[in-house]
């Protein structure tokens, strides 16, 4: 299949190769259905992504492009060079994940909706860093959550985890 266009919910188009787009299982499933119904000679396909804004979609596609490039590089590299490829991948991902909490939230939602496992794992790991070492009240503040456990429930949690929480 030739290149396809993913259209964000604010109308921005992103042209990418079908093989890259298939890193999103949601898109891959859609493409599979279309291939079955239209065949390989279909026109340039425009796929609307209603839940993702332009900025976030661009970020997701950056990941997919890089992921595919790294996958190709791993396949093409001899075994001796694999550690170097891995190191480069990790360095790129560290830079990629330098985003605000708000951006990270939108990225998680997009990765979940588009079903990109690699990106979802990366984002949730980064989000876990926002929780790590924080008290429950700090986590609530970070995520904008309201305390909705009753005093009895909180007591119960505290009692059964006394050894760890004290």
């Amino acid at each position: 299949m030739p290149d396809i266009v993913l259209r964000s919910n604010d109308g921005a188009d992103h042209k990418i190769s079908a093989s890259t787009a298939r890193l999103s299982r949601t898109v891959a499933s859609l493409l599979q259905d279309l291939e079955a119904s239209k065949g390989e000679d279909a026109e340039l396909l425009i796929v609307p992504i209603p839940n993702v804004c332009n900025c976030t979609l661009k970020k997701v596609l950056d990941f997919c492009e890089q992921q595919r490039a790294f996958d190709d590089l791993v396949r093409a590299s001899p075994a001796a060079q694999q550690p170097e490829v891995t190191r480069k991948t990790q360095a790129w991902r560290e830079t990629y994940m330098k985003v605000s909490t708000d951006e990270l939230y939108h990225l998680v939602m997009a990765a979940h909706y588009l079903d990109v496992p690699g990106l979802l794992g990366l984002c949730t790991d980064a989000m876990a860093d926002h929780i790590r070492g924080k008290s429950p009240s700090q986590v609530r503040a970070c995520f904008g959550l309201k305390p909705n456990l009753s005093p009895e429930e909180e007591d119960d949690i505290r009692r059964s985890n006394l050894w760890a929480l004290s």
Partner: peptide, 23 residues
């Protein structure tokens, strides 16, 4: 789904703490 994944990434101590965040 994502929330479970986030919690899965936490170290043990944070997982225990996280139980008291919300329902």
């Amino acid at each position: 789904g994502p929330l479970t994944s986030i919690l899965r990434h936490l170290p043990l101590e944070s997982k225990i703490q996280a139980q008291a965040v919300c329902k």
